[in-house]
Design a protein around this nucleic acid. Structure first.
Length: 927
RNA sequence: GCCUAGGUGGUGGAACUGGUAGACACGCAGGACUUAAAAUCCUGUUCGCCCUAAAGCGAGUGCGGGUUCGAUUCCCGCCCUAGGUACCA
């Protein structure tokens, strides 16, 4: 029989499922390897050909590792809480869990079609109560913990309480809110329960705090900074405004330094590491206190250039700075208030867009320079951001371009502080030279000035060295229905977590998925949803990233009812060895996951500081959209005439997306187009060379662009093995590239050739037990080595090419030797598992045993040739080739080359300066 | 602006530590088989020059320099594309 991919693929997919071929245990003599994919959100649209790219790569790798003798954990699950299911519920009234279940079923069918080696017995769904029970459990642990700076780790909040009881707050070094109080042990013990709890909330790692949040009125929810793009919501594109609300937050800032340091210990793509570094945004500098003249108030500023302090000629505060109202003098009141009003009106977006315009207002007050004692004016301006540092800066016009422009604009003094500074046209931020006009540091250089100033400021109590981070604490609440309920109830206005034994706190049923009439989140609709009939539950749910911040541990022990995973499972699997997913999660999921992992380590539940040792970003597969060009009439309205791509510039046309399924090699199937919609039935075409040529563009794959290619269709036409190999063949894994089905024939042909190696002309299975020839062994061992090297460095595309070469060679050699083919099947099986299983069984092996076969050992002896055609170049220019034995030493090669007649003739009596023999194979004669 | 990655035939791409640039595949052209088509197989395919042929010559990896016997690879300057980020003090 010819290569019948449909029968073969169905057969083996069923076999794997029935025999649980890929089920793994949590104990084994084998070394472990953990290959993880970023689990998908099961959207209603299903998978397109772009989604499986990473899954195929990870599956190839997992299968390869299995052949190398590892026990491989390779699971899959669903990040099944999320907005689309909820939006759908709001529109239709259908419970999100139903939508989710239906979508998951479809995802599973599509995934099963591709022959992945997932251990489905470990599937997780974040929206499943047996799963989110543990998400809630982790939340409780975070609530019951604080960050001890001295020991640089999270600790139980009871430790903190004990310290407060015995010593008060004096000796405590912990990460906390700015408004944490100072008190003695006696004072603490005299606090009411309410006072104590409200103080502890300032230390907890999961805490409630009034904060300014991104509120999206249209979605009725709070969004994280990374869910807001250009002032509108990432999902849906609705406007977002700033609003003060009591919000659950995660004290991720406590881990800022560890998150930063950990980046040096993991094997991640450099761009991604860089993104996380920028996101954390560490800057080393100093904070300086400026007294406000003739008051007791002080303004704290943060600077990374403390050495420029003598160049300060004014202070600038953010318009939102809390001290601003007290600083405004009567004469300035009108101007300043007008300015504040004006900045409020400008959206974030406008403020960002126009960074050239200089604006600001003088408050009327002055601050006292801490070192010179001189008075400097205090201004407000919107180039200073309330959310970064202290919301106030010391302005040094000579060294900072923004300060420079500001000083020029408002005619403020510019003080030169370094002897070499060039400040005629712009600020000079260089640190070279010796300080001038700088009192105690005059004549010093940068490296000397900084420690001296810090010491001076510290002695006077006017400043200190300080490290500032850009990263903010992560907002953790969402005013939505379809998420994990926060396991918290309120007693006298203060939050308490529920008993662990009462978990999971189930998501209650509601009549509608909208906010209540009084503006409460949808959970407010759950009547009698109370903790012990008495206290009200928290009504917000957790954000999308909660469930995905620890899921790789649940795969280790997916059905454990007593812990999120057993100690044995965690000890065996440890951490993810290889994680494959998109780079869009750089500062979201991947940062939060590292944070939770570090916390779980601190409380002794897991053993690794970093969860994902190696990470690969697969590129996005984009769609290739096709366009037709509709002729416009004089009024600019569309007509029934369509102009071919090459002629469109001669007419007035408008481009329209056309379904790519009606286009082949950019030529439109005119009849299919006419039949596609009733209003196209009368369509007339202006053709070129008798064809209608479509334009094209590379865009994201989406329904609305009619460019979605469903993997099911490809599998139907060519089979899963072809699709798998083709996606790998398309280009480097990490690179984004448009989908183009044109080249798939080549891969399909390859698999058929493979099949033919094992069959005679009448398609009868035939192999020979004869001894393989040297040439055949060489071909085999080349591919053994190549695939090994390629997979280890994730260069899957070049492997596919090598397979093609190998099979072409074996075909030319008419090789049907059992030993060769048997090994070829093993090496190929990670890429094309179905056909390989079939051939493996045909070769007489036990069905299903291929997945755990042993990867053949490479023997370099077979690659050694006796004769080789040496390229001989003179001064780097190729002149001739020489047949020589490969076993010669470089010295012997040199002698043979120089003795050669043609070489002698070329040299024409001259003696070469030197002869270079590279890697035993290339000879360059320098004349 | 800054950070990061990249720029190679008609197309996707290969060339791993500097060593025969264009592997492999698509497409295209020509041919074989066939009544025909599909399938399959063979030949050619970086560009230019030369040519009856055999063969040969020159240029060539975004642009301009440099290091080297030798550069797609290393260094300097510039241009372009993609992703990230943005008044971060």
């Amino acid at each position: 029989m010819d290569y019948q991919f449909k029968t073969i693929e169905k057969k083996w997919q069923q076999f794997w499922a029935n025999n649980q071929t890929f089920k793994v245990n949590n104990t084994s003599d084998k070394p472990k390897y953990y290959v993880l994919d970023m689990f998908p959100y099961p959207s209603g649209a299903g998978l397109h050909v772009g989604h499986p790219l990473g899954y195929i790569a990870s599956d190839v790798f997992a299968r390869y590792k299995r052949l190398r003798g590892y026990q491989v954990l390779h699971p899959m699950g669903y990040d099944s809480f999320g907005l689309p299911a909820e939006q759908y519920a709001i529109q239709t009234g259908q419970h999100p869990s139903i939508t989710t279940t239906v979508n998951i079923k479809r995802y599973r069918e599509q995934l099963d079609n591709l022959g992945f080696s997932f251990d489905w017995s470990r599937e997780v769904r974040t929206s499943d109560p047996t799963y989110y029970k543990w998400t809630q459990w982790i939340f409780i642990q975070l609530f019951n913990a604080y960050y001890n700076i001295l020991r640089d780790r999270a600790e139980p909040i009871e430790n903190l309480v004990r310290t407060f009881e015995q010593e008060g707050s004096a000796g405590v070094q912990a990460v906390c809110d700015e408004d944490a109080l100072s008190f003695s042990a006696d004072e603490w013990n005299a606090f009411t329960e309410q006072q104590q709890q409200s103080e502890l909330l300032k230390y907890r790692l999961a805490y409630l705090k009034e904060s300014s949040v991104n509120w999206c009125p249209a979605l009725g929810t709070v969004l994280a900074n990374d869910e807001v793009k250009d002032g509108v919501s990432e999902r849906g594109g609705y406007p977002v405004i700033q609003k003060k609300m009591m919000q659950w937050s995660m004290r991720i800032t406590a881990y800022a330094e560890r998150l930063l340091k950990g980046l040096d210990t993991i094997d991640w793509p450099e761009p991604l590491v860089e993104m996380q570094r920028n996101w954390i945004g560490k800057s080393i500098g100093a904070s300086v206190l400026f007294k406000v003249a003739s008051t007791v108030a002080t303004i704290e500023v943060f600077t990374t250039r403390i050495d420029t302090i003598y160049g300060v000629s004014f202070l600038v505060l953010a318009p939102e700075h809390e001290l601003v109202p007290t600083l405004i003098t009567d004469t300035q009141r009108q101007t300043v208030e007008a300015y504040i009003e004006q900045t409020k009106k400008r959206s974030e977006r406008d403020r960002m867009a126009d960074t050239k315009t200089v604006s600001g207002a003088f408050t009327g007050s002055y601050a006292v320079h801490p070192l010179t004692g001189k008075q400097v004016p205090i201004w407000i301006a919107d180039y200073v951001l309330a959310g970064y540092g202290t919301g106030a800066v010391m302005a040094v016009p000579s060294g900072d371009q923004r300060d420079y422009l500001f000083a020029k604009h408002f005619d403020l003094p510019i003080i030169k502080i370094l002897d070499g500074q060039q400040i005629d046209d712009e600020a000079d931020s260089r640190k070279e030279g010796h300080y001038i006009n700088s009192d105690v540091i005059n004549g010093l250089i940068y490296a000397e000035a900084v420690p001296k100033l810090i010491q001076l400021l510290e002695e006077r109590g006017q400043g200190k060295a300080k490290v500032n981070y850009r990263m903010r604490d992560a907002i953790f609440g969402r005013q939505r229905y379809w998420g994990e309920p926060v396991p918290v109830y309120f007693k006298e206005g203060l939050p308490y977590v529920i008993q662990e034994t009462e978990l999971p706190l189930l998501l209650p049923e509601v009549d509608k998925y909208l906010p209540t009439e009084t503006g409460e989140p949808p959970l407010g609709r759950a009547k009698d949803w109370k903790y012990h009939q008495q206290y009200a539950y928290e009504l917000s749910t957790m954000p999308g990233w909660a469930g995905s911040s620890w899921y790789w541990y649940r795969y280790m022990d997916a059905h454990n009812e007593n812990a999120f995973a057993s100690q044995e499972a965690i000890d065996y699997w440890q951490a993810v060895d290889l994680y494959i997913g998109g780079s869009e999660h750089a500062t979201g999921h991947l940062l939060y996951s590292r944070f939770w992992n570090k916390f779980l380590k601190d409380i002794g539940k897991v053993r690794e500081e970093e969860p994902f040792k190696k990470l690969i970003n697969q590129g996005m597969i984009q769609g290739r959209s096709n366009f037709v060009y509709r002729l416009l009439d004089e009024e600019g309205k569309g007509t029934d005439t369509f102009v071919s791509y090459g002629l469109k510039d001669q007419y007035k046309t408008t481009p329209l997306h056309v379904d790519v399924h009606m286009v082949h090699n950019d030529v439109l199937d005119v009849d299919a187009f006419k039949a596609s919609r009733p209003d196209y039935a009368q369509a007339v075409f202006i053709l070129e060379h008798g064809k209608y040529i479509c334009g094209y563009e590379i865009e994201k794959m989406s329904k609305s662009k009619f460019n979605v290619i469903n993997p099911d269709d490809i599998v139907e036409q060519y089979g899963a093995d072809t699709l798998r190999m083709y996606e790998m063949f398309l280009g480097p894994l990490e690179q984004s590239k448009p989908w183009n089905t044109n080249g798939i024939e080549g891969v399909y042909k390859f698999l058929r050739k493979c099949w033919k190696l094992f069959h005679d002309q009448t398609f009868r299975f035939t192999v020979s037990d004869e001894q393989p020839t040297k040439a055949e062994l060489k071909s085999l061992h080349k591919i053994i080595k190549k695939v090994e090297e390629d997979i280890e460095r994730f260069s899957f595309n070049t492997s596919v090419s090598s397979f093609m070469i190998c099979v072409n060679e074996l075909t030319d050699l008419k090789c049907n030797k059992r030993t060769i083919l048997q090994n070829l099947v093993i090496v190929l099986s990670p890429y094309a598992p179905h056909i390989c299983e079939e051939l493996w069984a045909l070769l007489g092996n036990e069905p299903g045993s291929l997945s755990y076969a042993t990867y053949p050992k490479f023997n370099p002896d077979y690659l050694i040739e006796n004769e080789f055609e040496y390229p001989i170049s003179f001064n780097g220019k190729m002149r001739m080739k020489l047949q020589l034995s490969l076993s010669l030493t470089p010295k012997e090669v040199e002698e043979k080359v120089l003795a050669n007649e043609d070489v002698q003739r070329y040299l024409d009596g001259k003696t070469p300066k030197k002869v270079i023999v590279v890697a035993g194979k290339i000879v360059n004669v320098v004349v």
